[in-house]
Design a protein around this nucleic acid. Structure first.
Lengths: 107, 107
DNA sequence: TCCAATATGTCGTTGTACGACATGTCGTAT
DNA sequence: ATACGACATGTCGTACAACGACATATTGGA
């Protein structure tokens, strides 16, 4: 498995799906909420990313009981969850390094 | 000031310069070291990023006492340092959210 | 019945990352 | 002397992700 620096949009999408399966629009709103309103994904970004995540088997389609509308739910695959864990741990490592670099020098 | 999700290469370059002024090749080696050998920037990535960082006044050229060779050192501007602080705090926020999302549910 | 929110998707543009290529210097071992 | 690896800086083309703009359709409420 290669070293993969996930982009912020993709990371947030995966985190959103880590909680529970969601459909596209729900991801959009949840990402906005999670980021405190800072990140508002465009649908272009969202559905492009979903396409790539499906192709890579990081997420999969998920049948909702409420499929009354054209809604399509997605959920993490176990592989996707594993990658996400990896990525989050990379991020924590990065923040540790960052804190060291920016700490006031001396003793 | 806009919301800016820094890419990993750019973030590491800035962190490298947060410690002390460096020239290009030194950044290259330091980034590799900081990331535990995981991130090895290509020179294309490095000098492309340096160009953009100079243009945006996030970094500036810095005269080294040892300018015997063609070496050109760079350092963070105060603006660059401020943005870096912002970005690191954004990253910490992100890891906090991530931990919440991936925590085992209940109570 | 109009309108906002919900919901999904495509397309073209823009910019970044990156490998490949090009060039030159310095110090050291042969 | 010279060949070689590390040091050092840069350009170019390609591939791909992000994103705004656009297109469409449904649902619930004022």
């Amino acid at each position: 498995m290669e070293a993969l620096p996930l982009s912020e949009p993709v990371l947030l999408i995966l985190l959103s799906l880590a909680e529970r399966p969601r459909h596209g629009y729900s991801i959009l709103k949840n990402v906005e909420e999670m980021s405190g309103g800072r990140v508002r994904l465009s649908t272009g970004t969202l559905y492009g990313a979903i396409r790539r995540l499906l192709d890579g088997r990081w997420i999969e389609r998920f049948k909702e009981d409420d499929s009354s509308r054209g809604r399509q739910a997605y959920r993490l695959t176990s592989q996707g969850r594993q990658i996400l864990r990896q990525e989050v741990s990379r991020l924590k490592q990065l923040t540790r390094v960052a804190s060291l670099c920016m700490a006031p020098k001396e003793t």
